[in-house]
Design a protein around this nucleic acid. Structure first.
Lengths: 337, 337
DNA sequence: ATGAAAGCGCTAACAA
DNA sequence: TTGTTAGCGCTTTCAT
């Protein structure tokens, strides 16, 4: 176990050829006579030579590394994004430089700028409003944005948030619900779209949407917000949550407040997190295809990196997944047995 | 938006100093006269110069990057490991190069070897048996192993798996359970330790452990394995699962098979995954401090990178978390109402 | 078919 | 305090 790896030079000397030959051979740039190639192959094997990616990158200007900036790896949405991104990256022989900004907008920019220096391009998830995101264009690197942006001219990919909540609201209306609340996460720019979708749907039935806010996109925040929604002056008979995490927390707290789910109140999430299926009642939600988003964003970036310029944006279609946390509305029965 | 960034040379020329001066100034290696420093500061700002980390790394031999290899980011254990590792890395101004090997042992080695070339050191989680892991020592980079290894001479950090299942078994015995099964994941080397812990505890009460196996450490595998455990010839009244994911799947399926939890069968997991708390019944488990493992492993690696050589291994203590999925055993009552 | 030599952008002696 | 210079390990013309 030597502590300094062999260089291209060592190979050249040992195989009695020039460094240029080794380089070309290793990269498959040129072919050589059988004898030389054999000798090369052997000495490389014997020495255990591996080309130094740093030195190569310095010259080629490409690192074969993709930067992925997310807000919180604990959030299943991002977990799935990473999953998808990792898969596509590896398929194309790229590696992932991951930064979890931990929902901290203060550090976000510095972290992303630092990240940008070490990668060929970036996939970014951010809650910064568009008018504060212009600096991303000055990174001098291709960027794919993990949400739909309107003014910023960069490739982006998101889901149709308006449609997602519209579908949920429609589903609840179909079940007979009339007093529907939305427990959102106002800090996220996409929250507005989600409010709008639900509101538009309800407006068609001449109903208004009661909007509440959670302080974070987490189960704990959902738990915390529960009582103000269910024990406030306008008790809803159905609640659409910003995401599955909030919904899960909300449901847990609702049960401990004595509400029966879904009889007393229907609850929905958004994201189709894996654990919605293991909660009780199993969570009705909208699949936002997080993993696919990660895959497509990474693919888009790799395409851009290889000079392709495809369509600037892509909007995935949400899909409603009905499970047991939503049920037909049965006018006010007794709340507890 | 120019597409080629300014180099140290551009700054040197513009500020009318030598490149060495710029380099030293940028790195804070040396101080200079106020006039020079001011001029430097201004030109750097004007040109928007940022030192190229690749070029720097080539010389210093350090990338300020840590490689983290995990088996499946979707598994909450690893999600938390990444969370912890990310935090410590960022604190120390390192970035994380992440590789999710997707539980694929075939690709594992190649991926890790490639990863090793681009980082200063690695934190590795692997299910390879120790006698097939020796190649990790030839990576020529410091490696911290995310599980306790006995023969391999590398820093490592794990939890006391024997104790974890011992505690769970003891807990179940205390509740009056006598027929206890273990639903493991035989492919993981640590599974043996977990079997042993439970077995030893039961042996003290002259009881035997029934061991079953899930084909993956996932909820789906837990669901799948459920019927062979509960509907087989030796129906247990309590089941210890390899991890929370398997337990969650197991519980879901058990419920749909008509078992009441925990009355008909007590279930436990291991890991303290966030969602155990939102399942019903809430999952009794053992906290394995996954996030702390990620933190400590990364800290250990960074220490090693700065020349420190602390204790070679560290074993975290598991903590039992009793929730509602385990209850006192009430001798065979009617299974359904 | 193979090699010599000029750098990529930077740091680290060593000089001045 | 500041500058000169020699590379780090590699790729890439341009020769031979």
């Amino acid at each position: 176990m030597k502590n300094t790896s062999p260089t291209i030079r060592d190979v050249a000397v040992a195989a009695d050829v020039s460094v240029a030959t080794v380089s070309k051979y290793v990269n498959g740039t040129k072919r050589f006579s059988p004898e030389v190639e054999l000798r090369l192959k052997e000495t490389i094997g014997k020495l255990g030579y591996r080309s130094n990616p740093l030195a190569r990158s310095m010259i080629t200007g490409r690192t074969r590394t993709i930067g992925l900036a997310i807000l919180d790896i604990s959030n299943p949405h991002f977990t799935n994004v990473v999953k998808g991104a990792n898969r596509v990256a590896l398929e194309h022989d790229y590696t992932l430089l991951l930064v979890d900004t931990e929902e901290n907008p203060t550090r976000e920019r510095a972290l992303i700028e630092a990240l940008a220096q070490r990668v060929d391009g970036l996939v970014i998830s951010s809650r910064l409003p568009e008018d504060e995101s212009a600096w991303m264009l000055d990174l001098n690197k291709p960027v794919v944005m993990l949400r739909h942006v309107h003014e910023l001219t960069m490739p982006n990919i998101g889901i149709d948030n308006r449609l997602a909540t519209y579908m949920l609201a429609r589903h609840l209306l179909n079940l007979g619900h009339r007093r529907i609340a939305y427990l959102g996460f106002g800090h996220a720019p996409i929250n507005d779209e989600r409010v709008r979708g639900a509101r538009e749907c309800l407006a068609e039935a001449d109903l208004a949407l009661d909007v509440y806010d959670a302080h974070a996109p987490t189960a704990a925040a959902g738990e915390q917000a529960c009582s103000k929604v269910l024990l406030g002056p306008r008790r809803p008979d159905a609640v659409i949550c910003y995401n599955d995490l909030i919904a899960l927390g909300f449901m847990k707290e609702a049960k401990s407040l004595g509400f029966r789910l879904p009889q007393d109140v229907s609850v929905t999430g958004i994201d189709n997190a894996p654990y919605g299926e293991y909660a009780e009642p199993r969570l009705t939600t909208v699949d936002t295809q997080s993993e696919k988003m990660g895959e497509l964003a990474t693919q888009k970036l790799i395409d851009a990196l290889s000079g392709q310029t495809d369509t600037a944006h892509l909007i995935l279609e949400p899909r409603l997944i009905v499970r047991e946390s939503t049920a037909a509305y049965a006018a006010a029965g007794p709340k507890k047995t």
